[in-house]
Amino acid sequence: MLDLALIWALIIALGVLIYVILDGFDLGIGIVFAFFPHDEDRQVMMNTVAPVWDGNETWMVLGGAGLFAAFPVVYSAVLSALYLPLVLMLVGLVLRGVAFEIRGKSQRTRPVWDLAFMTGSAMATFFQGVGLGAFIQGIAVVNREFAGNGFDCFTAFSLFTGAGLMATYAMLGCGWLIIKTDGQLQRRMFRLMPALTIALLAAMAVISVWTPLSQPAIASRWFGPALSMLWPVPLAVLACARGILQAVKTGNETRPYLLTLALIALGYLGFLISIWPNLIPPGVSLWAAAAPESSLKFTLIGVVAILPVILFYTGYSYWVFRGKVRPHDEGYH
């Protein structure tokens, strides 16, 4: 008998990872925007993602819809628990999405749209991180409903994970721009990368210590008998960080981005190990949260049939827009 709930949990985990990989860099571009005040640089930075950002954000909608379909109780309880951070995240996404369209058309109001793009990207990232932190700390669910206070989600820990996610996405954005730009702009991206790497490493270190200290269940998972299997995770993190710093020194264009992805994959693996097998920590397991079998099956058919096609044409679109983006490149207005 197939474990449909487990398959669905894996699909959603995969969807979230793809979301972080794809939308992470385009939100990150908005965050590193602040370091590049020149209009021409900014337009190049935006043009590198203009053809793909819509598709990147669709993964976030898939995450939401997938939860809604496969684990309705998670969708309803977690989303109402994280009400304010989610609303603020959505506000950020609206601001930056509109800025994408309008920045190039505006003249006098361009600084306003730059600000909207930066604030929007930063807000969306920060509040996603707050949501993540609050989720790790656990959500009070009684009788399939959120039973806590609307401000439970704002803790020192969740605010810190918000900041940590900003460093993560900024690094992805910087790595992406190293691939997509050249000349002066690329050199400045290379210079920014080490600082972001150290910021992310520090954030990962703090979260790795803070989480087990405040969550005994997670502590016993990591420092219990499984320790012998889990110790390579932090070592791999250090190896990735070292690789990024070296790649920056030698001017390797693609390695900083790819190693950042590896860093994120490791952090994500750590997160999954910590919450397993819960879908709402601390008490609701993925099996308890699953939708009726008929819903899981019906939707799974669509995912199995269509997701490979989506990945194929998403890849095609990236391939069409491969190569460096330069100032005065045509066709982006």
Partner: peptide, 19 residues
Amino acid sequence: QFGTNWSVFSNFAGSITGP
């Protein structure tokens, strides 16, 4: 918004409107 504002609805009908 279905989840943030209408959680009882989502929990009740999510197995149909979600898919």
